[in-house]
Write a protein that binds this DNA or RNA. Structure first.
Lengths: 172, 172
DNA sequence: TTAACCAGTTGTGAAAAGCAACTGGTTGCA
DNA sequence: TGCAACCAGTTGCTTTTCACAACTGGTTAA
């Protein structure tokens, strides 16, 4: 344990990196929303993060090795943020937090559906999702059986279905 | 979702309750260290929490229904903090954070051993541990098979073994 | 009766969060 | 070529939270 840590406890060390109100939300948006650019993360964050805080957190997460930053070849000014393997392995942490929040807090239905699927699928589903993230963020080819529907797509479809159903309900 | 939440996302709601550097450390000490009193949590915290912050967090966690507070019958002034079911169900979150921290951060050996056992035991071990916590904090009798060694005790023994081994190493 | 213990509270300065406006550059289109 | 929209942030400012040390008023055991 180096002198800049409060203790060598694994839980404490995790909290030193992620123990604030925004870092894990940014990672959530990258993982579940596939937000890769500063502007996407800024303007499409439902909680409304401030630009200076976003800039600070992205910098910290890159320094900590949770994210990596690269130039977007299609646009000189665009930066692309990717998860590292260290970042991808935060999925189980996020999944457990989602399960707990859904069960014990007043989650809204359309945002809780992903948590429900993550809960029902459990660790095997998370492992599949992590393989998809490795393909997307690390360029590691995904060997999927024929007919495989990506977890990302299943979560997205379930979310959109709930939103559509809510819209239909409101019309009546 | 009520107006005092930034969003109805389960992950966000979890972070609104636990998204700071201390709340989960307090819960860690209650779960893994069986610290139940203010003074225990204050003086035996390896990270060194300040008394006003501890008081504030305990108050918040009680308000949020993660902890409950009761008088200690053996001492008029003593307050006993217990986990609620909502608090007990944070164990998987803590376990995943411990696993992540151990793997990706410079955890010290004696504090990492618990994380290793939690990792190896996985969800079945966590479920056993949660039953023990229900007995200790909620008074729900634990029906254990004969010869059952509590998870709490196994974690404690493993920790002490590492400490003893380290001490022996230092003598040479 | 006195020293140690109990759960906190108070006062203060330092750090972090939050908001709005702004910077300097790039790109696509007329 | 010129201009509007877009890009990743930065700056200055106010408000809120954190952190440390000292302190409070009461309880318990010897």
């Amino acid at each position: 344990m180096s002198a800049d840590h409060r203790s060598g406890c694994p839980i404490n060390l995790t909290l030193e990196v992620l123990g604030d109100k925004w870092s894990l939300l940014i990672i959530r948006d990258i993982i579940f929303g596939n937000k890769r650019h500063f502007r996407e993360l800024l303007t499409q964050s439902i909680e409304g993060i401030a630009s200076n805080i976003l800039a600070d957190r992205l910098k910290r997460l890159v320094e900590e090795g949770v994210l990596s930053k690269a130039d977007d070849p299609s646009h000189k000014q665009k930066a692309v943020y990717s998860l590292t393997e260290k970042g991808i392995q935060l999925l189980p942490v996020l999944a457990q937090m989602a399960v707990w929040g859904r069960k014990h807090m007043p989650a809204s239905e359309e945002l809780a559906i992903r948590a429900q699927l993550l809960d029902e699928g459990g660790p095997p589903l998370w492992a599949d999702f992590m393989k998809e993230l490795r393909e997307r963020h690390l360029g590691i080819p995904l060997k999927a059986p024929r007919g495989y529907v990506p977890v990302f797509q299943r979560l997205q479809a379930a979310y959109e279905e709930v939103v559509a159903r809510q819209k239909a309900m409101r019309r009546n």
